[in-house]
Simulated scan of single mutants.
Amino acid sequence: MTQQPFSRPGAIDLSGLKRPAPPAGGAAPGAPGGPGAAAAAGSGAVGSYTVEVSEANFQATLESSMTAPVVLVIHSPSRSPESTEYARQVAGVVEAYEGRFLAALVDVDASPQIAQALQVQQIPLMMVLLDGRPATQPLPGVLTSEELSTLFNQLGQQLTAQGITGRHQPGAAGAPAAAEDSDEPAVDPRYAPAQDALERGDVDGAVAEYQKLVDANPADAEAAAGLAMAKVLHRTQGVDLNAAREAAAAQRDDVDAQTLVADLDLLGGHVDDAFDRLIELVRRTSDADRTRAREHLLGLFAAVGNDDERVLRARRNLASALF
């Protein structure tokens, strides 16, 4: 698999989390009428791509992140009613992506062991899971709907750029979304050829496939992001990171040396570092070198997503460096 522009510190420690056995003669926790039913109704979340998480279905929810990202929102109706309202808000935004993400809402009053397993220190807390692991740093506090949309747009673009186009299947609210009866996650057919190329390690083929999509529809933001990221992968194939950094340190105004390290920073998830490096290069250079540095930076903006907050901030800094 190609390098991910996400922070993945490791799998969640579930050693202290045990699934409770259904009580004799009663419904399973979280089932209609069972001990977890009231808690499951607590956030009031309703939607095809929203699941109320309990200790009984937590593992299944984690496993569903093997198909597509799971947006885990930790809330507490008793300690912070606002956090429960926020959980509903996140679920509402996620629904608009039609399976690109699954909103997984955790009421820690009803499921304290989940909070312990996730080492939750603050409520509300949101984290995005992919392949059973955190795909972003945990995001404490409350984001606006606009900020949530920007975040999910960016994640969707980055995932598509890496050929990860699976989607959750719609399910009943309060139940984990089931994957299709297939060993492979659902794939948006538009991006399947590019994904197949990336899985084969054929970066040139992925560039060509994304280019076809962009040529056919220049407004396809995910295809444009995919093309930009595939080009980054193409430029960094076989590059020795340490040697590249040494060359950039020795040649501060060499456009090729600096842009290569910026590419590597982007792939490593150091987005701001990549942007800052090229903005400073624009500031120091002139004429053709300045144009090359600026155009390369614009390509990295496309790879990350033009609505991303870091891109918006970098654009302002670039304008300052130019004028």
Rank of each mutant, 00 (worst) to 15 (best):
A178K: 06
G30T: 01
D276N: 15
L118P: 02
V73L: 10
V51N: 01
V207P: 06
A243E: 06
Q162H: 02
T291M: 06
E63M: 12
V73G: 02
S320I: 14
R19P: 12
Y97C: 13
S111H: 07
V93A: 03
G226V: 05
G226R: 05
I164V: 02
S43Y: 00
L155D: 08
V304Y: 12
D181N: 10
T285P: 02
S83M: 11
L139E: 12
E55T: 08
E52Q: 11
A179H: 00
N317M: 11
S64F: 03
E295M: 03
A115Q: 08
D204I: 07
L130E: 03
P69L: 00
L264W: 08
I279L: 09
T84F: 03
V304C: 11
I164W: 00
L322K: 09
Q113E: 06
A179V: 01
F275D: 01
P189H: 13
V70C: 00
E295H: 00
V311A: 15
A244P: 07
G47W: 00
R252T: 14
H75Y: 12
S54I: 03
Q211I: 07
S286F: 07
V207E: 04
E184R: 14
E280H: 15
H75D: 11
A175P: 00
A249H: 04
P29N: 13
V128N: 11
S48F: 09
Q211D: 06
S78F: 08
Q258L: 04
Q113I: 01
L159V: 03
L278M: 14
D287L: 04
R100W: 07
G305L: 09
S320Q: 15
A250M: 04
T236G: 04
D272I: 08
A206N: 08
R88N: 04
D107A: 05
G163D: 04
Q154A: 08
A288I: 05
N153G: 15
G132P: 00
Y86D: 01
T67V: 05
T165F: 14
A248G: 13
D188Q: 13
Q116E: 14
G44S: 07
Q157H: 08
E82C: 02
V46N: 10
G174S: 14
H296C: 10
A27C: 07
V106D: 10
M229Q: 10
